[in-house]
Every structure is written in structure tokens, then in C-alpha cells.
Design a protein around this nucleic acid. Structure first.
Length: 946
RNA sequence: GGCGACGUGGCGGAAUUGGCAUACGCGGCGGAUUCAAAAUCCGCUUCCGGAAACGGAGUGAGGGUUCGAGUCCCUCCGUCGCUACCA
């Protein structure tokens, strides 16, 4: 390596030159504030320009530093941001760090260093690496979710939800005070858990308070939660995968606990509907729809003993076929049967299934198990007694945790009925013998008659409607929409998260901390490790001085609680998702001190209109969003991984909708266009038996790959980068070896941004050589002098205009790979000819979004003193895009047989004549009859002849 | 099992609306330059046959629509991602 470098021309573009000019321009951009963008009201800010908010998903700053996968989306968004900036937009392109939460804390626990210290260190590493790529972030807007000035507002937004309820009349969040007014005026009646109405005037203060508390959007609820003893915390359903924690893969148990919850279920319909109006990948919208899991059906009450057993079904039309019922092992009915005394088989089954983790339940899901409860229910349609069973194939968490089993028309019920010899009847036409397999499709109802109603002959949809109407009139059922989505568990028993701005009095009643007393600071703790135990024990409980305080000290409004009242602080913390629910808002005005976001800045950066509003200084809270004229989402382009398709993106939408309802933000959706970059994978090798081999244990031989040790031939496959396969690529190494511009180009040249592609070290040299050729085209490699032509070449000029056109179009559709290919072609064409000053200037502008350091260098060598990043995108001359003469393929029966050179605007007749006059064509047509001629002007001629 | 995406040269990929399949890059081969090599520049490189002209096949497999299909429709196979007893 070093020997080769000695002979190299001293002014060749190589890693040394690249690294030198990269650090020079990076410092210069920092000093000049090149990428700092103002806000409305700032002195040099031109509010008349259109805005473009281009956002990256901010990273978790883990101790390991950036991965080559991180920059892929960031490079893409940087190219777009630079392009928009050069096209006259005010571009908001910020970066920050999602620094609270499990990953940072786990790392701290492992290394024994305080999470605050590891977080700061990791952020510094990330920032250094990000700056090394020359991204055009406005670093003056950098935020970290762990900053006190940031999480103060995370707490504030949470309090907003705490102080609000979901008004069913308007389908919007509203201050809880309005509910109180409604209840006091009698315009709205309270109802209890079962839905029965109560009298507000008849309730005492304490039950009134309790009632309001149950209506809050952020509320304290008793829930069976996912308790992970190893992580020492509870987890949201979304954080549990196959019965194990998403982070760490530890077993998760189910445990009833009193926890802070978010009433996200109230927003289910709006979260679902607005998916139709955002510009998001279909796959992500589908995933969110499925996660919300809306199903229309009915709840039906089956009389059991003195009471009812309520079930949910999407097929009420099959009620005549319900031959037994099943409740989940966790269902209260099971407890009452056990309490009344029963055989040990039931107790054993229930205890076993309740303790079974979901992993085990999954393992033998094919085998249906269950035990009869020994009691009977009455099928309200047939009037017959049917047995009630418990089985773990019915899930406690979905619907009412109980089902009517229709073995004729549900495969799971069918499997169960066969296993326990329960009766199967057919009530829907279609399918084969229901004894053999359930018929789950639709068809006309049959065998569905009683004294008062007949469904026979009705198609499935009509039968559903008719039977629900009947059930409603009988008072034993209701039309009902059920959701898979459940309320969001928002407490964590961890140290590294936002404390809740809540205190409890001695009676255990909760009180909010006033806005003015925020933030509730995370106390310093020497011992921040999670407590591994069977009982959730938040580590903050160890900070006794912090926990035990007075209402006045904690900042509770004196009107709510006397300042001297002793109180205990809430010791749970918020989950890692909290900070990422609104960070894109804070970027609008990161140092705003009196609000979570400055209203004028929020309105400018979030609200996109077809025609610019003349006045952007309206106060928040005014209803200004206009579905016709405004873009539904505020962020114009959001780029990030598909792994956040459900969790982060659903939570952020939910928070945004609350804030929108309360008049705090201008748009109903946070992200207008969403784009997922693909994953950067790597190569690995596979033995014949399917086992994987690490990259460094394999060498190339005779065009194939063999394992070093054994000489066994192995197959090259594509796999995720992993430590065990030793195929992880460190971006620092790549930058050192080729320069940041080369790495930027390589990642964009690998393929479409949305596609996953394997990192292939061997290919990087291709784009590096392109930069060398571009450099050599205008710079003398021996003495470093610029060499430009006095007069530009005509062919090169035409090619340049085509390239300007192509690159501009490709950037807008995020097809960076083909844009780069076009620039490579241009350089190849100009090689050996050279460029004039004007041509070189235009080409430099084209390069600027992709390779900002090289472009800045070129720009300054051209004698410019301001940054190329702030110049205008070059304009192409449309007349240069078309040739006078074009070559048109002539086909016979769809096969290209010849080509003719004709005027570009030649019409149908001219083309026809020219094609037939072609020597080769007339030869081939000899003896054939021309049946038809298809002529597409400017494209081709196809002769149908036989 | 369900949903979704994708299958194009030795490799990464291009073909934006049904219109010249394989742009561009890597790798490979050859040439120029060089004492020699590296680097650079030029050329060739889907496969089969042929010295070439040219012919034939060809976008996972099979079928269909069309003057014409990588692109649209049906069936199947394979890979990846998500999801998983959701009543």
C-alpha cells in the first residue's frame, strides 16, 4: 500500500486528500453556521420562502457507536435537504438523541458506569461520527430527550393528557374541567364500569373524584401487565415478542398491577381513518391497521346461573350453531366456579395455564387443551343448555375473554370440539361436511330458526344484521366494535426515564405537579440498577429524600393540597417511547423556555398549505387546520427504519392527536410522508449442513468460497450484520480508507434507498474512482492547478443538460442510485475532452447534494467564497434534451431486426415508409404479407407479417 | 397458518406510463502506456452456436391477455420481512 502511494501524483483525490478537505470544510461550515436556519421573526429569515421539514428518526446513542446501517437514511435525507435548500426552500433538517430508555441503561448496568455518563459519551461519539459525514443538520437545534429542558416538556405534555378526557360527543380530547362542567350541569351522566348510569348529584366527593380519575387520558389502571423479572420492569404488549422481552429476550410473566395507562383505545378509529390520508408505505399502514385490529360484530350475553356470560363475536349469524362456550383461564367466572368448590382437575389446569408463559402456550398451539367448568349456559337463540369450558385457546386480553364456540364454522372451535367430543352443527351453507372441517366462509344461513326469528336463507351479512337487531330487542346483545389495540401501559420500574410529575397523599390519592414546578428532576442515584425480583420495585424508591416530600416542595398547586401535606412522589418512570413522541416538535424551537414549542415556529414548520398563509402569527388553539388546503401531516419527509412501523409511529401519532385536539399543534398527523430505508446486510457463508461460517474463516478459491480450516466448499449468502459472523462494518474505518464522500456515494449507489442490499467492500472502489476521475477532469494531479477549457465542447454541453435534468428528477423520487449513475456517465463522456468554467460550475452544483465536501472544494477552487450549499440548483435548457435525429428500432413480430435514423418528430407515415424502405427489413419481408403496422412515434415500429 | 415485499448476467443493480432487456458500478478478459509493475486510458464481457456477418434462447417455473410483457392477469416454486389460536 505505502509503496504504491509513493508513486502517486501528489494531487490525486485519495483518502488523504479527501480526509483533509472533509475536516477543513466541516469546520468551516460550523464556523460559518452554513446550515443554521432561522425561524419566523428572526432578522435574516425570509418567511416568504416555502418550508421543507426533512426529518430523520433520531438514534439511540448506544455505546457501540454508529453502525453503517444508520447513515443510509441520513445520507438520503441529507441529499433531499440539500437539494430543497438549493431550490429555494427554508429547510428544517435537525438531529438529536433518544437517550432515555432501556438500551442506554442496560449498557450502563453492564459497564457499571452511570447512565448519565455513558449517555453523554455515546452522544459525543455519535455526534462526531455524524459530523464526519458532512450532514447538513442545523446542529444549533440539537436536542437530547435526557436534557432537563427537554423532559420538562415531556412531563408537561403528559400532564396535558392527565388533565384531559376524551369527549365522545366531539370525538376529541378536551380539558377534564369540561367533563366536570357537563356532569355538574347534568348534560352528561356518569356511568360505571358495566355501563350503567349513575347520578352525579348522588355521588360523594371521593367517588366524584374517582370517577373523573377514571376518565383521564392518562390514568391509573389496574392491569394484567407483562412483568419481566430480569429487566425488573413491566413492558408494553408491543415490547413483548413471543413471550420474551424485545430487549434482551428475557421471559415475561403476566401479573396484575396498578399502573399509569394511556387511553389510546379512544383514538382507535381516528388513528385508523387517518392512515388513509397520509403518504406512507402501504406495508406500514397495513401493519398499523392490523395492530389496531378493528372488528365489527356483537357482544352477546348468555345466561349462566344467576348472571350472564358476555362474549364478543364477529359471526353473530352463527349463534344457532353455538354448542358450547369457552372462557379464558383468567376469566372471573373460573374463579367463582373454583371458589364454589370443584374437582382438582379444573384448579390444576387453570393454575398451570395461568403460570404458563406465552412461549409455552405457543409451542403446542396445535393441541387444544381445556377443562369443563361443570356449569351450563343458555343459548339465547336455541334456548338450549350448553356446557361452559375453560381453555387457553381463548385469550383473556381480547374481547371479553370468553367466546361462544361454533365448531361448525370456526376451525379452532372445531379442533376443540373434536378433541372433547362436543356437538357440531351446521348453520351456514357451503363447504363440505362440518364433521370433517369447519366452514369459515360465508353462505346462506340454515338451521337457524326459533319461535321468534328465522335467519334461514339469509346471506351472511343480512343474517348478522337481522340477528343483532333481534338480540338488541331481546336485551341480550349489542352491536359492538372490538379492537385488538389496548390501552398503553406507560409506567416502567426503571431508573433511566422521565419521572412522572405526580405525588400521592397519605390516602394514596394522586395530585399533579404544577406546570411551573417542572421539570420533576430525575434524582441522582448511586445505585440505579433495576431490582431483579418477583415484585416490581422501582429503583427511584431508593431515593428516600426525593420520594418523601411535601406538597409545597413538590410544587403541587396550593388550591389542590395544603403545601405542608406530606406526600410521596411517584417512583415509576416513563418508557423509552415518551421522548420520541414529540421530538420533531421541539426541533422547531429547541430553546423555547415558556412553551414546549413556540407557536409561530410550529405553525411555520408544520403547517403546509397549497397557498402560503399571509399571517402565520395566529395564536395556538384557534381552529386553523383546513383539510382541503393543508397537508395532513406536518413533517414533509420522515425517513427511518421499518422496525418502528407500529410502536414509535403509532405512539407519536397518538400524542400528536391529543395535542391537536387541545389546540397545541396545527396538524392532525405528525408525519406527512414516511419512507423506510432498507437494511444494509452483509455477506456470510453457509456450509452444506446449513450452519453459518464467519466471514474471516472463509477464503476465495477457483471462483468459489471454501472454509479455511477444512477446505470445505461453502455457499455465500446474505445475512444481517452480526458480531458472531464478524461481518460488521465500522463507518469510521470506511471513512478513513476512502473518505466520507465516497462512503456517502457508495451507500446511495448500492441500490434503491428502500431496498436492503449487502455491503460489498469490493464495490466501494467504483464510486471512489468516479470521484477521482471527476477530480482529474478539472484538476492537474501533478501540480493541483485547475485546468479548464476556454470553450466548452458541444456534445459535453448537451450531456450536461441531460444530466442536470436526470439528476433533479431522480433526487425528487429518491432514486439516488440512478442519479449517481447519470453523473458517472457524464464524467465518462467528458473524460478526455474537459470542461469549461461554466460547465464545471454547473457540474459542481450537481455534485453538491451527494458529495458536499468535494463540491465545496471545487466551488472554492472556482474562486467562490460563499458555500455551494447555499447556491441555486442549475437550470437545464429543455431544447438540449432532444436530439434532431433519433434511432428507432424496427421490429418484425416483436423482434428487433433493424434500426432507422429519422427526425425526432417524424410522424406515423414517415416512420412507416422509412421502416419499409430499410434494406434489411425489405429483405426479411420478402415473401411475407404485411398484416399490420404498429407505429409509436419516437419509440418504435413493429411490423406484423407472415 | 395469515399478511406484505421481492425473484433480471459471475456480483450490486437499471429499464418512471406495456415499447430497443441487462444503463451504471464491481469482477473478469484483451490492448495502449511502462524496463517492469501499480495507477491511468481505450476496448470486450447475458448464455448457446459461429472466424465473422448473423442466428437462436433469455428477466424463478408454467399458462394467459396483447402487434408487443421484466412490467398486466391466473397457478405454482423460492427468498426475506412482519404477524401468529384476535373469536
Amino acid at each position: 500500500m505505502t509503496d504504491q502511494n509513493q508513486d502517486r501524483p501528489s494531487h490525486r483525490y485519495d483518502a488523504t486528500v479527501a480526509n483533509a478537505l472533509e475536516s477543513r470544510w466541516q469546520s468551516w461550515w460550523d464556523e460559518q453556521g452554513t446550515y443554521v436556519v432561522g425561524n419566523p421573526g428572526d432578522s435574516r429569515f425570509d418567511e416568504g420562502r416555502p418550508k421543507y421539514y426533512c426529518l430523520d428518526m433520531f438514534p439511540y446513542p448506544s455505546g457501540a457507536g454508529l453502525h453503517v446501517g444508520h447513515p443510509e437514511g441520513y445520507i438520503g435525507s441529507d441529499i433531499i435537504s440539500r437539494f430543497k435548500r438549493m431550490n429555494g426552500f427554508n429547510v428544517l433538517h435537525p438531529m438529536g438523541f433518544d437517550s432515555f430508555g432501556l438500551p442506554a441503561e442496560q449498557y450502563a448496568v453492564q459497564t457499571g458506569v452511570h447512565p448519565r455518563d455513558t449517555t453523554i459519551k455515546a452522544i459525543n461519539t455519535f455526534r462526531r461520527q455524524l459530523k464526519g459525514f458532512g450532514f447538513s443538520y442545523d446542529w444549533s437545534r440539537e436536542i437530547s430527550t435526557t436534557d432537563e429542558s427537554y423532559y420538562r416538556w415531556t412531563q408537561w405534555i403528559w400532564l396535558k393528557a392527565y388533565q384531559s378526557f376524551f369527549d365522545p360527543a366531539t370525538q376529541k380530547a378536551s380539558p377534564i374541567g369540561r367533563l366536570l362542567d357537563q356532569l355538574e350541569s347534568g348534560s352528561v351522566q356518569p356511568f360505571d364500569v358495566d355501563g350503567t348510569q349513575m347520578q352525579w348529584s348522588a355521588m360523594d366527593d371521593s367517588s366524584r373524584r374517582d370517577y373523573l380519575d377514571t376518565r383521564r387520558l392518562a390514568y391509573l389502571g389496574e392491569q394484567t401487565v407483562n412483568w419481566c423479572p430480569r429487566l425488573g420492569t413491566v413492558l408494553a404488549n408491543e415490547e413483548v415478542i413471543d413471550g420474551r422481552s424485545e430487549r434482551g429476550g428475557f421471559p415475561v410473566l403476566r401479573k396484575p398491577l396498578r399502573q399509569w395507562m394511556f387511553r389510546i383505545t379512544e383514538y382507535a378509529d381516528r388513528l385508523l381513518e387517518d392512515l388513509d390520508v397520509v403518504d406512507w408505505p402501504e406495508s406500514t399502514r397495513t401493519m398499523q391497521r392490523e395492530w389496531i385490529g378493528r372488528s365489527e360484530g356483537a357482544t352477546i350475553r348468555f345466561p349462566v346461573g344467576d348472571g350472564d356470560l358476555e362474549i364478543f363475536t364477529t359471526r353473530p349469524d352463527t349463534i344457532f350453531g353455538a354448542t358450547y362456550m369457552v372462557v379464558a383461564p383468567e376469566h372471573p367466572l373460573v374463579d367463582s366456579v373454583i371458589a364454589a368448590g370443584c374437582d382438582s382437575a379444573l384448579t390444576e389446569y387453570v393454575t398451570a395455564s395461568r403460570n404458563r408463559s406465552d412461549v409455552d402456550r405457543m409451542a403446542d398451539s396445535k393441541e387444544k387443551t381445556g377443562v369443563s367448568l361443570g356449569i351450563e349456559a343458555t343459548n339465547p337463540a336455541t334456548g338450549r343448555s350448553i356446557p361452559v369450558w375453560t381453555a387457553d385457546y381463548v385469550l383473556a386480553g381480547y374481547g371479553t375473554g370468553a367466546i361462544m364456540a361454533v365448531p361448525g364454522h370456526d376451525q379452532r372451535d372445531h379442533d376443540f370440539a373434536r378433541a372433547f367430543d362436543l356437538p357440531i352443527v351446521s348453520v351456514v351453507e357451503g363447504g363440505d361436511d362440518v364433521e370433517h372441517a369447519a366452514w369459515c366462509g360465508s353462505g346462506n344461513a340454515m338451521n337457524s330458526v326459533n319461535d321468534r326469528i328465522s335467519l334461514d336463507g339469509l346471506d351472511t351479512q343480512s343474517a348478522k344484521d337481522v340477528v343483532i337487531d333481534w338480540l338488541e330487542s331481546e336485551g341480550c346483545g349489542n352491536r359492538h366494535v372490538n379492537y385488538k389495540l389496548r390501552d398503553w401501559l406507560f409506567s416502567r420500574q426503571r431508573y433511566w426515564g422521565e419521572p412522572f410529575p405526580i405525588v400521592y397523599d397519605e390516602q394514596g390519592r394522586h395530585y399533579p405537579v404544577s406546570d411551573s414546578a417542572l421539570p420533576v428532576m430525575l434524582p441522582e442515584l448511586e445505585d440505579y440498577e433495576p431490582v431483579e425480583s418477583d415484585e416490581p420495585t422501582p429503583p427511584l424508591g431508593k431515593a428516600l429524600d426525593w420520594v418523601n416530600t411535601t406538597a409545597g416542595e413538590a410544587g403541587v398547586d396550593p388550591d389542590l393540597l395544603d403545601p405542608d401535606t406530606p406526600v410521596r412522589r411517584e417512583t415509576n418512570t416513563m418508557p423509552g417511547w415518551a421522548g420520541s413522541c414529540w421530538y420533531f416538535l421541539r426541533y422547531c424551537s429547541p430553546s423555547c423556555e415558556d412553551r414546549f414549542v413556540d407557536p409561530r415556529a410550529e405553525r411555520y414548520w408544520l403547517l403546509s398549505e397549497r397557498s402560503k398563509p399571509s399571517d402565520v402569527s395566529l395564536a395556538p388553539g384557534e381552529e386553523s387546520f383546513d383539510a382541503k388546503n393543508n397537508q395532513v401531516g406536518g413533517v414533509d419527509l420522515y425517513i427511518g427504519g421499518a422496525e418502528h412501523a407500529v410502536l414509535h409511529l403509532l405512539y407519536a401519532r397518538f400524542w400528536h392527536k391529543i395535542l391537536f385536539d387541545l389546540g397545541e399543534v396545527s396538524t392532525p398527523e405528525p408525519m406527512n410522508k414516511l419512507f423506510h430505508q432498507g437494511m444494509i446486510t452483509s455477506f456470510a457463508y453457509k456450509r452444506a449442513d446449513g450452519s453459518l461460517v464467519a466471514v474471516d474463516a472463509v477464503c476465495e478459491r477457483d471462483g468459489g468460497h471454501v472454509e479455511r480450516e477444512t477446505g470445505e466448499s461453502v455457499e455465500r449468502i446474505v445475512a444481517k450484520m452480526s458480531k458472531s459472523l464478524r461481518n460488521v462494518v465500522n463507518p469510521d474505518d470506511v471513512v478513513a480508507e476512502y473518505g466520507a464522500d465516497t462512503m456517502r456515494l457508495y451507500e446511495m449507489y448500492m441500490g434503491p434507498l428502500e431496498a436492503s442490499a449487502p455491503w460489498n467492500t469490493r464495490d466501494i472502489v467504483g464510486v471512489h474512482r468516479f470521484l477521482q476521475r471527476a477530480w482529474r477532469l478539472v484538476i492537474d494531479e501533478e501540480n493541483g492547478a485547475l485546468h479548464l477549457l476556454e470553450e466548452g465542447d458541444d456534445a459535453v454541453e448537451r450531456s450536461l443538460h441531460r444530466t442536470i435534468h436526470k439528476v433533479g428528477e431522480d433526487i425528487q423520487r429518491l432514486a439516488f442510485n440512478t442519479a449517481i449513475a447519470a453523473m458517472i456517465e457524464f464524467v465518462n463522456e467528458a473524460t478526455g475532452v474537459g470542461l469549461s468554467r461554466a460547465q464545471f460550475e454547473k457540474f459542481t452544483l450537481l455534485l453538491a447534494p451527494f458529495v458536499p465536501h468535494v463540491a465545496e472544494e471545487f466551488w472554492h477552487r472556482l474562486g467562490r467564497e460563499s458555500s455551494v450549499a447555499l447556491e441555486s440548483w442549475p437550470v437545464f435548457d429543455p431544447s438540449m434534451l432532444v436530439d434532431d435525429q433519433v434511432e428507432i428500432p424496427v421490429q418484425i413480430l416483436g423482434k428487433v431486426r433493424s434500426r432507422i435514423l429519422v427526425a425526432a418528430d417524424a410522424d406515423q407515415k414517415t416512420l412507416e415508409a422509412a421502416a419499409l424502405a430499410d434494406e434489411r427489413i425489405s429483405e426479411l419481408l420478402e415473401g411475407l404479407t404485411v398484416r399490420k403496422m404498429v407505429v409509436v412515434p419516437g419509440r418504435l415500429v413493429n411490423i406484423v407479417a407472415n
